Simulated assay, not measured.
Amino acid sequence: MSHHLSGPNLRSPKDDARLDLTDLFVFPAAQDGRTVLIMNVNPFAPTQGEAFHPDAVYRLNVDTDGDDIADLAYSFVFSAHENGRQTVTVHRATGDQAREHEAGGQAVVSDATVAFGAEPNIVNSGDLRFSAGLRSDPFFADLDGIVNDFKWTGNDFGIDKNVFGIVLEVPDSELGDGPIGVWARVSLRQNGRLVSVDRGAHPSLTAYFNAEDVKEKYNAGEPADDWDTYREAWSAVLAHTGGYGTEAAEEALRTVLPDVLRFDRTRPVAYPNGRTLTDDVTSARLAMVSGGKITDDHIGPHTDLLDEFPYLGHPHPVS
């Protein structure tokens, strides 16, 4: 999986698909001078959750100075789902407010309608463009082959799947002049307290690297702590799966730890410099964990992607 089913025992966090972060994407917009940020949640949508969770805060964090701490954050808070309708408010926070998991700062989009049908609802608010709703899952991988000792089947797990997409397009000036780091988080309000239940940036990390009893701790953690917390255990995984020595393992892990997706807009976009909807991240991760012995699962990107906002394809029919 990419980041699908990121709770213990290959289940959604809190056994609730609405809280399950599946993927993060960062790439240049079709219009010059703008950047697209996408976080997808809810694998198998809408059958395992017909709307976004009304007690959750969905969040895109942006680090603009390289310290792995958010300097800018966009939080998405959804209303209850009633009579087939749900709305969302987008908050923009900077400075100290960007470092809190609460949805602080200014409301830059208010009560926008979530799209559950075939057509997206696109909202333009100032320099921002935003859309949230049911979309085709862009993730592609031969998961059957991966779990069957890499005997490839040709079956693409994501070819008929849907997710709930949160798509934001912002001017580059919003993100500063230099490289940025981005990660997504889903937090749930429980007993009056907001608890982080999922987070991530790079694809296919927690499934390969985290033991089952570590996943909840990882989902609650902060990227700035990742290197010290996970370097040793993840190096041991690479030693076991790919025959890495200590130095080689640490060099490989510096790409994904801290778990922040870097994007330098002066360089061509291709994972791990940002991530487009067609980047073959499954093959990249297989090559990493196998020490270069497995380099391709022979599944290509989806062909239903859009050339313009919101970029994610139209949702598949739901049986």
Rank of each mutant, 00 (worst) to 15 (best):
P8R: 12
N9A: 15
S12G: 12
L19N: 01
F25P: 00
F27A: 02
F27N: 00
F27T: 08
D32Q: 08
L37C: 11
I38F: 04
N40W: 05
V41E: 01
Q48V: 10
T64S: 02
I69D: 10
A70T: 03
A70H: 09
A70S: 05
A70W: 05
A73H: 09
A73E: 06
N83A: 14
T89A: 03
T89N: 00
H101I: 15
H101T: 05
E102S: 14
Q106R: 06
V108T: 11
D111K: 13
D111S: 07
E119D: 11
I122W: 13
V123S: 00
F130M: 05
F140S: 11
F140A: 08
D149H: 15
K151G: 14
D156W: 03
I159G: 11
I159R: 12
N162T: 07
I166H: 15
V167Q: 10
V167R: 01
L168Y: 07
L175H: 10
S187C: 03
S187Q: 09
Q190H: 04
Q190W: 08
Q190N: 06
L194N: 04
L194E: 13
D198F: 02
D198I: 06
G200P: 01
H202F: 01
T206E: 15
N210W: 15
N210L: 06
E212M: 12
V214F: 15
V214Q: 11
K217T: 07
A224M: 10
T229W: 14
T229L: 12
E232K: 07
G243Y: 06
E247V: 08
E250H: 01
A252P: 00
L253W: 05
V256W: 07
F263N: 02
F263Y: 12
T266Y: 03
R267G: 12
A270R: 11
D279R: 14
V289Y: 00
I294Y: 04
L306E: 02
E308R: 13
Y311I: 04
P315A: 01
S319W: 15
S319Q: 13
